[in-house]
Structures are given as C-alpha cells and as structure tokens.
Design a binder for these strands. Structure first.
Lengths: 97, 97
DNA sequence: GGTAGTTACGAATTTCGTAACAATC
DNA sequence: GATTGTTACGAAATTCGTAACTACC
C-alpha cells in the first residue's frame, strides 16, 4: 500500500469515475485503474462495485476511505511540521538570501 | 514522501546507524542511505546529523519521527480494518473453502 | 586501517502511456 | 455505437546491489 495508491483510491472514491479521477490526478485511465486493482489485490478484497456509470464504493471501500484520508492528511502535516521545524532551528538548506 | 521512505527513516532513527537499519530492513546500505537523502532533499532540510559513530536525529528529524510513526501505524490499521470489513460483508476474494 | 556514510554505474524491476479489448447501455 | 473499465505491450523512469570513494578516528 503506497501513498500514491491511496491518493488514487480517494480520487476514484470521490469522483465515482476512473476517467474523471485520472484527469484530476494528471494521469491516464490505465495506470489509475491498475492502482485500484493493485490495492484490491493487496488487500484481498474488492473496494468498488463496477456499475455501468462508473465505480461505487463497497463497504470495504468505505472503511478504507476514512483511513486513507487520515493518512494523506497526516502526510501533509508531517511535511509542513518538518519545514516549520527547519525554519525554527538554525541552518536550513535553502539559504535565507 | 513514500511509505517506504518513512519506514527507512524510522529504522535509521531508531538504530542510529544506517548499516544496522539496513540489515533490519533486509536491504543494503546504499539504497537505504539514498532513501534518507531523498527524504531530506524533498523536505528541503537535513533530518540527521552525521556523527563518527552513525546518525543522530536533528530537531527536524524528531519532529518527523512522531508523524512518521503515526502514519505507519495508521497504514497498518487501514489494512486490518479493510480485511475485517471484507470478512464481515458477503463475498470476499479468498473463497471460505 | 577500521568504521561509517555516500557516489558511480549497470541490471532488474516498476510504471507510464498508446492501442486494443470487453462489457453495458 | 458511445461510454466505461481493463489488458497488452513497448518505452521511460525508478530502484536495487556491487564496487569504489570519502571522511573521521
């Protein structure tokens, strides 16, 4: 389970559509579809129901969505916190000019 | 920032030593060293101080360590929760035999 | 000269996008 | 036949490990 796969999963869950999610992620459909298939394979269970109009979350997918959002948010916070700590402390990489 | 990089970071932080962390992760030193360098590059700041005996966390690294552990734990919970939801619901991939 | 991290570089793996396919209305 | 997801497949990018290098006692 990679962060990329989780970003893909959340986008498809929110759009209900691989094509739209792909455009939102600046990606084409096939790789995005593979991300979802890889995730389902790794977890050993389908996450979406394939319906004529697109992708509908299954209960397993709903369960994942909550955690996926938490993880992605926490990743954002982590990056921001480190950058702030770098400013706070002495000598950061980008020279203060 | 990938989950792999975070796992590498936590291992090095806990061991204080790239070599030992690499053995723990079943990896050689160079890729592990590159993971840390990539993370530092992405965040724009060093995370460790290179000391004669190994790697010592900087304040930036301490800040990241907390979040990294949270993220990795949350990933574990996510996987477990989905697998449990799959058992709870109807038709999982692995046939119940 | 031993211990530690890093850089060079070629091989293996992964991941992408285009094209072709399958399924549903 | 239009719309949607998936599979095939070759090209590009990533990542690994061995070997060589650097720095510090």
């Amino acid at each position: 389970m990679s962060i990329t796969h989780l970003q893909s999963f959340v986008a498809v869950a929110e759009e209900g559509h691989v094509g739209r999610a792909a455009r939102r992620l600046h990606l084409t459909q096939p790789p995005l579809s593979r991300h979802i298939l890889a995730l389902e394979d790794e977890l050993g269970t389908p996450l979406f129901e394939r319906v004529p109009r697109g992708m509908r979350l299954l209960p397993t997918g709903e369960a994942l969505l909550h955690h996926a959002r938490l993880i992605l948010a926490e990743v954002e916070v982590a990056a921001r916190t480190v950058r702030e700590a770098a400013r706070g402390s002495g000598a950061p990489k980008p020279p203060p000019a």
